[in-house]
Amino acid sequence: MLRIVLKYGLIAGVVVGASLLGVSLAYQGQPPPDWGMAAGFASMLVALSAVFVGIKRHRDSAGGGVIRFWPAFALGLGISLVASLVYVAAWELSLVLIDNDFAAMFAAQMIERAHDKGLSGDALAAAVEQARGFETMYRNPLLRMPMTFVEIFPVGVLVSLVSALVLRNPRVLPARA
């Protein structure tokens, strides 16, 4: 089971990590906001399809075409964990390769959005203070890495849940004889 977790977790991690690195390098860490987030989550879903494939593979080879919900869910979580760790490593690598100050750029975008909302006075000062606080916090890798992990892992939990629910039924994509 560990072999399947590592194999499919690394496959998912490389797919989503390569996507992240490619977009980061192509746009110097600033993809167009209108599609950047959607493309990121789409790449996560595509990569995390390895969870479904890994659970099915384990069900068919080790389980003789049958798997219970909890073992399937645990297997999916393991694959998602490995993929998420690779995703965090890819983001850290992209921060080094891009060589721009992502924290300052994102804080500036937060302030710009506050201006666009028409904030002024104390409300604008609070928004600027929040942006500066974020910038300081994001520079600390011990805080940044868990934030990056939380971007993808909940998606992996959801994919694991759905995959375990679907694949516990042996009539869904039955094993070939």
Results as ranks from 00 to 15, higher is better:
residue 170 P to F: 02
residue 92 E to K: 03
residue 101 D to A: 06
residue 106 F to R: 05
residue 136 T to I: 15
residue 102 F to G: 00
residue 124 L to Y: 07
residue 165 L to Q: 07
residue 91 W to Q: 05
residue 91 W to N: 05
residue 79 I to S: 02
residue 104 A to F: 06
residue 87 Y to P: 00
residue 79 I to G: 00
residue 137 M to H: 12
residue 130 Q to P: 00
residue 94 S to R: 08
residue 141 P to R: 13
residue 66 V to I: 11
residue 114 A to D: 05
residue 98 I to L: 10
residue 99 D to C: 09
residue 71 P to W: 05
residue 138 Y to K: 08
residue 94 S to K: 07
residue 82 V to E: 00
residue 153 F to W: 11
residue 74 A to C: 11
residue 99 D to F: 06
residue 102 F to A: 08
residue 143 L to G: 07
residue 119 L to V: 02
residue 83 A to F: 09
residue 170 P to D: 09
residue 97 L to K: 07
residue 145 M to K: 13
residue 85 L to Q: 01
residue 147 M to I: 10
residue 158 L to K: 04
residue 96 V to H: 11
residue 93 L to T: 13
residue 129 E to Y: 05
residue 133 G to R: 12
residue 150 V to A: 15
residue 85 L to V: 09
residue 127 A to P: 03
residue 151 E to G: 04
residue 108 A to G: 06
residue 126 A to M: 12
residue 89 A to D: 02
residue 129 E to M: 12
residue 93 L to C: 08
residue 146 P to L: 10
residue 107 A to H: 00
residue 92 E to T: 03
residue 96 V to L: 14
residue 97 L to N: 04
residue 112 E to Q: 15
residue 126 A to S: 14
residue 164 A to K: 05
residue 86 V to G: 01
residue 163 S to R: 06
residue 71 P to N: 06
residue 61 S to H: 11
residue 113 R to H: 11
residue 65 G to D: 04
residue 69 F to L: 10
residue 124 L to V: 09
residue 118 G to P: 08
residue 172 V to K: 09
residue 157 V to A: 12
residue 121 G to R: 02
residue 158 L to E: 03
residue 90 A to F: 00
residue 132 R to P: 01
residue 147 M to W: 10
residue 130 Q to K: 14
residue 113 R to F: 11
residue 100 N to F: 08
residue 88 V to E: 02
residue 122 D to I: 10
residue 138 Y to Q: 14
residue 163 S to H: 07
residue 163 S to G: 11
residue 75 L to M: 15
residue 131 A to Y: 02
residue 135 E to M: 14
residue 95 L to F: 09
residue 127 A to T: 06
residue 101 D to W: 01
residue 95 L to N: 12
residue 132 R to W: 03
residue 152 I to F: 03
residue 109 Q to I: 00
residue 84 S to G: 14
residue 138 Y to L: 12
residue 145 M to N: 15
residue 95 L to V: 05
residue 73 F to K: 04
residue 72 A to M: 07
residue 66 V to F: 14
residue 68 R to N: 13
residue 102 F to P: 00
residue 160 S to A: 15
residue 149 F to H: 01
residue 111 I to K: 14
residue 127 A to S: 13
residue 114 A to F: 03
residue 148 T to M: 13
residue 77 L to F: 04
residue 143 L to M: 15
residue 85 L to S: 01
residue 77 L to W: 03
residue 123 A to W: 01
residue 82 V to S: 00
residue 79 I to D: 00
residue 65 G to K: 03
residue 159 V to E: 00
residue 153 F to Y: 15
residue 60 D to T: 08
residue 88 V to Y: 01
residue 69 F to P: 03
residue 78 G to N: 04
residue 81 L to K: 04
residue 116 D to G: 12
residue 126 A to F: 08
residue 91 W to D: 02
residue 82 V to I: 10
residue 158 L to I: 15
residue 142 L to N: 13
residue 77 L to E: 02
residue 62 A to S: 11
